[in-house]
Design a protein around this nucleic acid. Sequence first.
DNA 1: TATGAATGAGAATTCATTCAT
DNA 2: GATGAATGAATTCTCATTCAT
Lengths: 220, 220, 220, 220
Amino acid sequence: MPRTDCKARMPKPKAAAPRDAEKTRARILRAARNEFMRHGYSGARIERISRTGRSSDRMIYYYFGSKEALYLDVLEGVYAELGAAEAELDLDTRHPVAALSELVTFTWHYYLAHPEFVALLSNENLMRGRHIAKSATVKQLSRPVLGILGTILAEGVRQKLFCRGLEVNRVYLTLAALGYFYLSNRYTLSSFLGTELMHPNQCEAWLAEIQRVMLASVAA
Amino acid sequence: MPRTDCKARMPKPKAAAPRDAEKTRARILRAARNEFMRHGYSGARIERISRTGRSSDRMIYYYFGSKEALYLDVLEGVYAELGAAEAELDLDTRHPVAALSELVTFTWHYYLAHPEFVALLSNENLMRGRHIAKSATVKQLSRPVLGILGTILAEGVRQKLFCRGLEVNRVYLTLAALGYFYLSNRYTLSSFLGTELMHPNQCEAWLAEIQRVMLASVAA
Amino acid sequence: MPRTDCKARMPKPKAAAPRDAEKTRARILRAARNEFMRHGYSGARIERISRTGRSSDRMIYYYFGSKEALYLDVLEGVYAELGAAEAELDLDTRHPVAALSELVTFTWHYYLAHPEFVALLSNENLMRGRHIAKSATVKQLSRPVLGILGTILAEGVRQKLFCRGLEVNRVYLTLAALGYFYLSNRYTLSSFLGTELMHPNQCEAWLAEIQRVMLASVAA
Amino acid sequence: MPRTDCKARMPKPKAAAPRDAEKTRARILRAARNEFMRHGYSGARIERISRTGRSSDRMIYYYFGSKEALYLDVLEGVYAELGAAEAELDLDTRHPVAALSELVTFTWHYYLAHPEFVALLSNENLMRGRHIAKSATVKQLSRPVLGILGTILAEGVRQKLFCRGLEVNRVYLTLAALGYFYLSNRYTLSSFLGTELMHPNQCEAWLAEIQRVMLASVAA
DNA sequence: TATGAATGAGAATTCATTCAT
DNA sequence: GATGAATGAATTCTCATTCAT
């Protein structure tokens, strides 16, 4: 039982006394996002969050009320950001192949750049969507991506580039699955496949593969 | 007083105290698998496991030594079972399309029938593969599937049914991703897509879609 | 209902929950010292400490982090107190015999008045100095006694009262051994010798004996 | 939380199946002596004893009944051995100085060769002689040393080599203290004095010092 | 004579949360 | 808006000990 870190309260370390509600709240939220990503809901520790966020346990309760509420806030934030990013997508649906390709790229890069999104979603699913079911906010968040994809597919069919009978939900599922799974399961996959999946070259190659598969699967 | 049924009860009212090491160990293991699946590593409770397994906390430590060791044992078991199932696959590689299709079906049904496999793998990845990295056993387990798939692809190319340049790892990733993601993320997906993904019809339809995508992606 | 004395009691019937960190910490430390003295490290119980210290198990971890850290804190405190007491010694080294005699008396009385010092040291030695080795603090504590004794001996030699060739370390060892052993081993000794060693008369007599032996052993 | 040693019960390691009551008992006793020496009563672990003694927890209860009874057995053994060794002392009391010197040497070497004696006695004292008080056996054990020492002192006085008025108990206490303390407190002393007390040279020198002090303290 | 399985009481430690200022 | 002190209910794990064979 080595004494690596000293957990005992020492008299007044006093590092930063913010006095700025917004910033404190934001720091906590950022720290929480990181903590929940790394450890999941059960594994996350209030104390670690408050420490990382240079605040105190007490403040977390002051601002968020409970661990669960904080978690929900994080979750909603992560969803909202994705929604916002999707809303900014400006695809030229007149060129369905290019548009689809761009959508694939966007999705992949989003997952890649937002590991916390992937981790939090996986965690939420592990908990059988317990929190997401509760969140009114998440349900109201617009996820325009299905609409966009629908438009692309329709135009593709009209231009006889894409085959008929494509279901937007299924195409989206394929698109998401190919990007998400590669990242969410990278640890066990690396071990199984013996490849360093996160190496930039590998990532690029995988994006190309997703593109290839997606196009093949919708092609007329 | 609790209900006393016809047969006279001896002074030991204990639920079950069988002097059978193998069975006790197995019951604990089964209970643990279920608990870790439902709650992840951190959320799992030793006490719940011992209760479900009709044993005691103490016996868990007697047989497994620690929560972590128990978790590892569960993980290894789940892996070993998949390996064994894959080893029993008997595909006729002379017909590559049918063989690939069967492999897809097998994989999908395996995930579907073994939610604990999906959940435990997701959890392990959430923990950044911490435990799997430690397990010598898991690394030694044979996963013959890559070999099988390689043979199928080679034969497909030889018969000019499949396109050249396919990488077995990537094809496998696609195959796994399409099945795994649908199930691992069903809660958030259901909420987002507004579909009841686990309805048998939906499941069947999704298997058909995986088949379609897979074939399209390897077709010559 | 517990006795309600004249002053009206607020809803908190708790024994003592003083919002005074210093006092709480001190109470715990005192209780711990007592507990470790009585039962040694392994035998000591966190729960007993928290009860005696009118606090809670939780607070012990709040302030000290672990049982081991608490033990170390106690040990350091006990050492520090001895160091402080030695530092206050004001011996007139011009009269070496009297000074030595006073030092003997001081040491004996210190051991006698601080059974926790004797017990904790014995316990620490039983554990092969495991904790003391870790403690940076203990090593830095000044124990001026060797210096003082050195001066006394030198002056005694100069005045031809003490014999030449005395080694300060050995003289100190003798001095300490004679006092310490009598107290540390009093239970087995009482049983063996059939004397009530802790009777005040016996104690006084033993001090006289130490004086006699010490003087005889340094006399010219 | 590293998994250094595997504490889980593995199916049948089966190393040695003694089938010799006496030997098994003896092995357990030896292991117990070692364990109690190293860890004290509270710190000692039945399981470690059974492992070291190549037996099982169950056997300890079979032969000794309880941890406490085992401890007592060890304690009594250690005392009995000392008594036996003292009984074998064959000092020529006609030469009191030489005889005293021999007794000193014997005592010192006994302590040096039997660290378990020193440790167990210290531990017993830490527990305020709780067990020794209970043991009828220990009380009956003859410790002839006081008689021997008495004879030596009387003869020394008769030969005008030793001073009058010496009390055998006190002389014995001095003798024991000087040897015992050096060894029992060697860890804290080493740290304080900065000497490697257990180095053979140091040990020899200390024996010489004890001789010197003893002679000086009894000399006429 | 021996053993593996089982147990209950307790041990240290953790954690989210609330109180008082 | 902020903080340090305090808490109670768990939670993992340990330990001496007994049961059944």
